[in-house]
């Protein structure tokens, strides 16, 4: 009876609740030798009322809603895959179902290993392709962030219903890169250099990113 009431209430809230909003943060801390740490954070806290409602339903707009256990299992599978991936270590994750924040963090030996991380994450999301998103030339101290999706994201987005597309309207994608040495130059004009000159940040609207109105590609030259 209690759950029926809560489910009905959830459906009601879902019908009238405001549009979704989320933020993704990709933070890479790179050492001189090319090793470092990556942390991915998915923060759905702004939509937590809606998500709490959605989680109590079986499906919404024809999309099956996974249970908390399903989500935990999915993340744990990914973590286990990352733990066995070459060059990755100290893999940690947190899932906060009160605020709907998920984070994934690990250390990498070389930037090439970072590509393994990206590959594993996208494989788990059933996104096909070879991802070599990161490149670092130790001798030249040149860091590159590439965008490997081509038109895939844009094409997938175009297939979504209008209501599903709205989910991305207020979403943001933040990229932060930290280095031991100061940044000499960077190619992406949407990047912002920190006061210490040792960090770069890009905060993009998810919709603009998907539509390729803005790019996350960046070539960063560090002072040797």
């Amino acid at each position: 009876m209690k759950m029926i009431l809560v489910k009905l209430l959830s459906l009601f809230i879902l019908l009238i609740s405001t549009s979704s909003c989320f933020e993704v943060i990709e933070e890479v801390s790179l050492n001189k030798n090319g090793s470092g740490t990556i942390e991915l954070t998915l923060n759905l806290s702004q939509s937590k009322t809606k998500l709490a409602s959605v989680m109590l339903l079986d499906s919404v707009n024809g999309h099956k809603i996974p249970s908390k256990t399903d989500i935990e299992k999915h993340v744990l599978d990914l973590v286990n895959d990352l733990k066995s991936a070459p060059g990755l270590s100290n893999v940690k994750h947190t899932i906060d179902f009160d605020n709907y924040i998920l984070s994934l963090r690990c250390d990498f030996k070389k930037v090439e290993n970072l590509n393994n991380f990206a590959q594993q994450v996208w494989d788990k999301q059933k996104v096909s392709g070879q991802f070599k998103s990161y490149n670092y030339d130790v001798s030249k101290m040149l860091f590159q962030r590439k965008f490997d999706f081509g038109n895939k994201l844009k094409e997938s987005y175009s297939k979504l219903s209008k209501d599903d597309k709205n989910v991305f309207d207020n979403a943001s994608y933040t990229l932060i890169y930290r280095f031991e040495n100061p940044v000499k130059s960077f190619s992406n004009k949407n990047s912002k250099l920190s006061k210490s000159k040792k960090a770069l940040m890009m905060k993009l609207n998810a919709n603009n990113f998907i539509q390729q109105n803005v790019t996350i590609e960046n070539t960063i030259q560090l002072i040797q």
Partner: peptide, 15 residues
Amino acid sequence: ERTFTTYDYDEDFNY
């Protein structure tokens, strides 16, 4: 009024 979690960035983008 509902609370939600977001991030504050300092001048070195630590959040």
